[in-house]
């Protein structure tokens, strides 16, 4: 029961991370390996504003959102569009964007290390709380609640707004989207920016209950990628299920065997997905 509840709470935040990456990969077609650093940047902002100005992380989420949105939009426009233009095919774009985002990831880590080289340790809403006989920290519960709300808003935006409709159209088929008058470049930039924004917001939430440091981003990138692949690229429902599965399995391994093996557990899941369901949990075989 402990595992179920803690796993679910962890999974809630993973959903948010995966949604961010899904927008960037599924719509803008950029495999963003600097996504984890966006999470860590959010965490750093949450930590830093709390320590220096005692601004609640829950407020920081909304302070950082527009900045992350603008930053990611600029990154897409200035750094990634040239690669999209240059690439002759999807394969070339994939290689280029992987290398470029690796570069960005290292640059961001380098900058963050020079800003704050130690752990982002702070205590926020750390009081214990009992639900269904399980004791969880209040901050985890609050983070979960915020993750659900943000995820829900994102879902509503994608499914019930004009812009969201355009985003989904580009994700399904950029060529056809162009035919019905959608500005694919603009929508891709929008999706990339929103994706980065969601990741940064998730980062602030995570910082309230997990102690991070500047170099931990790559682990989050890995996890987000595993979730996205397990859920199926562009499939939000799949991502939610996958995130909860990953959250539960990690929690189970950490409590039952050894916290040092969570990455190995994530790998095991990844391997199973690659072997048996490479198109995602609910995915159909590619045509």
């Amino acid at each position: 029961m402990d595992i179920l509840i803690s796993g679910l709470l962890l999974g809630g935040t993973y959903v948010l991370i995966a949604m961010g990456l899904n927008l960037q990969y599924g719509v803008a077609r950029i495999m963003n390996l600097a996504n984890g650093e966006m999470i860590v940047l959010g965490a750093l902002a949450g930590f830093w504003l709390y320590m220096t100005a005692t601004i609640s992380p829950l407020l920081t989420i909304f302070l950082i959102a527009p900045i992350a949105f603008a930053g990611n939009w600029l990154v897409y426009r200035l750094l990634l569009v040239p690669l999209v233009r240059r690439a002759g095919n999807q394969g070339q774009l994939e290689v280029d964007s992987i290398l470029a985002t690796f570069g960005m990831s290292f640059v961001l880590v380098g900058i963050m290390v020079s800003l704050h080289g130690e752990y982002f340790t702070y205590s926020f809403l750390a009081s214990p709380l009992s639900i269904l006989g399980t004791t969880v920290a209040l901050n985890r519960l609050v983070a979960f609640g915020f993750a659900v709300v943000i995820g829900l808003i994102l879902y509503l935006w994608l499914n019930h707004s004009r812009a969201g409709m355009a985003v989904r159209a580009v994700s399904v088929d950029p060529a056809s989207a162009r035919l019905v008058g959608i500005d694919v470049g603009k929508v891709s930039a929008l999706a990339f920016a929103v994706g980065g924004m969601v990741s940064a917001m998730a980062g602030v939430l995570i910082s309230t209950f997990i102690t991070l440091d500047a170099s931990v981003g790559v682990i989050f990138t890995m996890k987000a990628l595993i979730i996205v692949i397990m859920g199926g690229v562009g499939d939000i429902r799949g991502a939610i299920v996958a995130a909860v599965i990953l959250g539960m399995v990690e929690t189970a391994v950490a409590t039952l065997i050894d916290p040092g093996l969570t990455l190995a557990a994530a790998y095991l899941i990844f391997l199973l997905v690659l072997l048996f369901k490479p198109q995602g949990l609910f995915g159909r075989a590619p045509v």
Binding site: L83, A100, F102, G103, S105, F106, V107, G110, S114, G117
Partner: peptide, 15 residues
Amino acid sequence: NFTTLFLGLAFLTIV
């Protein structure tokens, strides 16, 4: 302290 930053810049320069 700048090795990571340099690694990143090297990647970007190459791409």
